[in-house]
Design a protein around this nucleic acid. Structure first.
Lengths: 337, 337
DNA sequence: TTTTTTGTTGCACGCGTGTGCAAAAATTGC
DNA sequence: GCAATTTTTGCACACGCGTGCAACAAAAAA
């Protein structure tokens, strides 16, 4: 090999030389609101285009201690709603300058290992959209100051060190309950997900309380180990197979659409009954499949985009923190109830 | 503030001091197969645990020119199969030391902008699991040496600068076609996705060719603009609404499950017909929903995990490159055909 | 024209780690 | 017990860019 000229990576120095300015001016040309004349910015950008230069975000992160990276922790890939959230979050984050590190926490025994790993990449924040996070572990991870901001998305969290961005579960469930009561159903069954974390109990408790206030009795409920339609199918089938028609619920109120879809299928294909004539079903999330003619789920749509914008505010440090858990969505009434 | 002691970030220097060794020994303690004595590694690791130290991956990437980061480009969030692939890829990549940058390319007018962005983070490779990638743009992005490796996952690509990891579409479709022919269907309709890229045509062309060889006639087909069940629903409904029973297809062979699910729903809820008695349907991918009693799709399961392991081989630079497009999956026969 | 103000540019230093090589220590052979 | 090995350790330098400040030029005011 004859010479040792720099081969692939062009740096700001190269651009500086070509543009006839200093390296720092190059840096400024790429920074919005930087103190630089229009003339030299133009010079620099032209030189950059000619050389095919783009700033190295790794080096920038190291130097500025801001990575513009957000870790997205997910542990529940059976729920199609996660796909919706990922799409919305990645898009809106990107629009605002953040990239997304997707972390699958299914294998980790605890989320803090994943958090640790994310922190090694200096993420500006970790966003949890999963379900199985132990509040104590989160607290520990934050205590060790491993990650700058910890945000629980689309779920309420009681952990004071955590920022929760979600819609008002209580008022949402109140709408659903009101609809169910108005429709005149008499024997509800609440289908809940994992009962391990307190944050998951809100929807159930709200429903149970409101129902009791309205009708005097306390609705029955069952829970499944994860938000998986197949599991919900099994649970509902097992539960109802031996019920007499009289003892059978006439409406299944589900914690979310993933469970509701399993419930609908079980009612139809396992019990041979009709939805909603024999048993009605409600969901939560309004996943795309909920609108299909097969399900036509009555459900509740969270304002994911607005919530994602709220997340951006938090990242920018411009949030009022107070209203982040009071987003309100929309009850979507379809045929299933 | 009285003193200026280092507050949050503990570096290798801190650990070195506590362990009584040099910073470079600390570095070695965290590197597998490094030349270091068991004794000093133990000392270092204990000190690290005590201080809560973890190596900074940003600085490491910068120094070593290896980021252990892979960009995953996705532009198709309506297809539930993407969720399966993301889960599998993130898990297996992580197990092998790579983190995943999730890039939503829905908004980008072209994938090369997304590639550029990923390259600024020095990703070791970009993995495409989307659909709307223009081969010319890919070539341009690679030509500018913006990204080290470009991998097309679960799709074949003719671009020579690209590494394609996928199952053998031809033999997979041959299995499906064989099943359809053996079942004795007479009037097939092929339901295809976007017809913009040549890589998408393989399944259709294989089916059409084999069918023609077997039965002499050429099957009809329609295509939809994206792999979205709702779109497939519309297309199938529009297509068949006015068909007489005789002219109607008796089997709809779909490019994947997302389309097949839309087709099944259209047949049932728009045309009021039965699957498979009136019209049969086949899919591709074996998404979780395909196994639900509502669809029971006859479909083809790709060996995603094995393919992901193949991807790891490529990342490690240990691949034989040849067999990467010859993975073979499994025909899953259910009730829909 | 001189002084003040505003706008623009250059630079030393730091961010936290890896690499390759040379010095030092530990181990082995005779 | 000494030399030849092998293992282990330390170090200068590099990675590419941002920050804060000081120097400089240009425009505005006097």
């Amino acid at each position: 090999m004859p010479s040792n000229v720099a081969q692939d990576s062009i740096t700001a120095d190269d651009v500086a030389e070509l543009a006839g300015v200093s390296r720092w001016t190059v840096s400024r040309a790429f920074k919005k609101d930087a103190s630089i004349s229009a003339k030299s910015r133009k010079k620099v950008l032209e030189a950059a285009t000619e050389l095919g230069y783009a700033p190295d975000l790794l080096a920038a992160s190291l130097a500025s201690d801001k990575s513009n990276l957000v870790a997205l922790l997910v542990d529940d890939f059976a729920n199609p709603h996660k796909l919706v959230m990922m799409e919305r979050l990645t898009r809106i984050l990107r629009k605002n300058g953040w990239d997304t590190l997707l972390v699958n926490t299914l294998d980790e025994n605890d989320a803090s290992a994943a958090l640790m790993n994310a922190s090694q990449r200096r993420v500006d924040a970790a966003v949890l959209i999963g379900v199985n996070f132990n509040d104590q572990e989160l607290a520990a991870a934050l205590g060790a100051r491993r990650v700058k901001k910890l945000i629980v998305f689309a779920r309420s969290s009681e952990n004071p060190n955590t920022i929760s961005i979600c819609c008002d579960d209580r008022s949402a469930m109140t709408e659903i309950t009101g609809h169910v009561i108005r429709k005149g159903y008499r024997r509800p069954l609440f289908l809940a997900g994992p009962q391990t974390q307190s944050a998951h109990l809100m929807r159930k408790e709200t429903f149970v309380r409101l129902w009791h206030e309205a009708n005097g009795d306390r609705p029955d409920f069952i829970s499944v180990g994860s938000y998986d339609p197949a599991l919900a199918y099994q649970s509902v089938a097992d539960r109802m197979r031996n019920s007499t028609t009289d003892a059978r619920p006439d409406v299944v109120v589900c914690e979310n659409d993933a469970l509701a879809m399993g419930a609908v299928d079980a009612i139809r294909y396992e019990l041979g009954l009709k939805v909603p004539q024999d048993i009605a079903v409600t969901g939560f999330d309004d996943v795309p499949q909920a609108a299909s003619p097969h399900y036509l789920l009555t459900t509740y749509r969270q304002p994911i985009s607005a919530m994602a914008e709220g997340l951006v505010q938090v990242l920018k440090g411009e949030s009022d923190t107070t209203d982040l858990c009071r987003f309100s969505g929309q009850l979507i009434i379809r045929d299933s109830a």
